[in-house]
């Protein structure tokens, strides 16, 4: 059974590239362009990993994570957050919300794949 990854990112080009990379690796991918969009895509079906950017319009990554953690179906879903080194404050907020895995932007697909493979396997 293929593992499902929810990928939340406002950059269309990053979504496009990561979608093809993750699909090629054998993951099922759900794409969302911001936190609000992502919340709309959480319908209770199993998600094995959430990858989310921090800086996004409408609903940013931190608010999104806080909301996800409130949903019983996803309270233990691992989350990787994409951040930049300038965001110590955001990171602390995210850590308080239960995010343990951080990837510093900009990254290239292999770096993210390596991080994913630490948490789930295809």
């Amino acid at each position: 059974m293929a593992k499902t990854i929810l990928f939340v990112e406002d950059s269309a080009s990053v979504r496009q590239v990561m979608n093809s990379t993750l699909t090629r690796e054998g993951y099922q991918v759900i794409l969302a362009s911001d936190g609000q969009d992502a919340m709309g895509k959480l319908d209770g079906s199993k998600i094995h990993l959430i990858i989310s950017d921090v800086n996004m319009p409408n609903m940013d990554g931190i608010s999104f994570v806080k909301q996800v953690k409130q949903l019983p179906a996803y309270k233990f879903t691992p989350i990787i957050m994409l951040t930049t080194e300038n965001q110590a404050e955001k990171m602390n907020e995210g850590k308080a919300a239960g995010v343990k895995a951080w990837i510093v932007k900009p990254f290239q697909p292999p770096q993210l794949l390596a991080a994913i493979s630490q948490l789930i396997q295809a």
Binding site: S11, V14, D53, N55, K105, P106
Partner: peptide, 21 residues
């Protein structure tokens, strides 16, 4: 303004366009 710069940096990084990053 920040988000525009931030997103461009992130995307450029993924495409490996170092000067823009």
């Amino acid at each position: 303004i920040f988000r525009a710069a931030h997103t461009i940096k992130g995307s450029a990084g993924m495409f490996g366009i170092e000067p823009i990053v």
